[in-house]
Simulated scan of single mutants.
Amino acid sequence: MADAPTAGARLRNEATGVEVILVKAPTEPGLEIRPGGPVAIGKRYTCPACAAQALVVKPGAGELVCHDAVMELAQARPLPSSD
């Protein structure tokens, strides 16, 4: 079994053209890029199981998969009110 990638690692899939940087590493190996729906550049995706996060640096027709589940688009945190 391969070692789990660490934060800051780049993952690339030649078939889809997708490249991501890991912001928060997964708890165990298994993060992969599979052919599928499009991912957008600059978007952050989160694993619902382990909270791993990946930032897309090259978009393409792929999907990010961790723990055999498609990673979800991370929602922006609301800014505090200045009132």
Rank of each mutant, 00 (worst) to 15 (best):
V65C: 04
A76H: 07
P78E: 00
Q53T: 14
K58G: 03
V56I: 15
E28T: 11
K43H: 06
C47G: 09
D83R: 00
K24W: 06
Y45P: 04
E19G: 07
V23K: 13
I41P: 00
Q53N: 09
E28G: 05
G60M: 04
V18D: 06
A15Q: 12
I41L: 14
H67W: 08
V56Q: 06
G17Y: 06
T16N: 12
D68Q: 14
D3F: 07
G42N: 06
C50P: 02
A49V: 12
A9F: 11
P29N: 07
A51H: 09
A61W: 04
N13E: 05
A15K: 15
A76Y: 04
V18A: 10
G17E: 09
D83K: 02
M1A: 14
V56C: 09
E19Q: 15
M71D: 00
A49Y: 00
V18K: 13
P5K: 11
K24G: 01
T6G: 07
A4W: 09
P78L: 01
G30F: 06
S81D: 02
A74N: 03
T6M: 11
R77W: 10
A9G: 00
P5A: 11
E28W: 07
S82Y: 02
P78F: 01
E32I: 10
A49Q: 02
A52P: 02
I21D: 05
E19Y: 08
H67E: 10
A61T: 07
D83T: 02
P35V: 04
T27R: 12
T16A: 13
V23G: 04
R44T: 15
T27A: 15
C66E: 03
I41E: 10
A76N: 11
G30C: 12
A74V: 07
G8L: 12
E32H: 05
G60E: 00
T46M: 09
Q75Y: 07
A54N: 05
S81W: 01
K58M: 13
P26E: 01
H67K: 14
T6I: 14
V70L: 02
V57C: 06
L79I: 06
K43V: 02
C50V: 07
G8R: 14
S82Q: 01
V18H: 11
L79R: 04
I33K: 01
A7L: 05
D3L: 13
E14S: 12
G30S: 11
L11F: 11
G8A: 11
P5R: 10
S82I: 01
A25K: 08
V65M: 06
P5W: 08
T46Q: 13
Y45S: 05
A25E: 12
A69L: 11
T46G: 00
Q53A: 13
Y45W: 10
T16F: 10
A54H: 04
L22H: 13
L31A: 05
E14F: 11
V56A: 08
G36F: 02
T16H: 10
A74Y: 01
A25M: 09
K43P: 01
A74G: 06
L73C: 05
M1E: 10
S81A: 05
A61V: 02
K24S: 11
G30P: 12
G17L: 10
V23M: 12
T6L: 14
L73D: 04
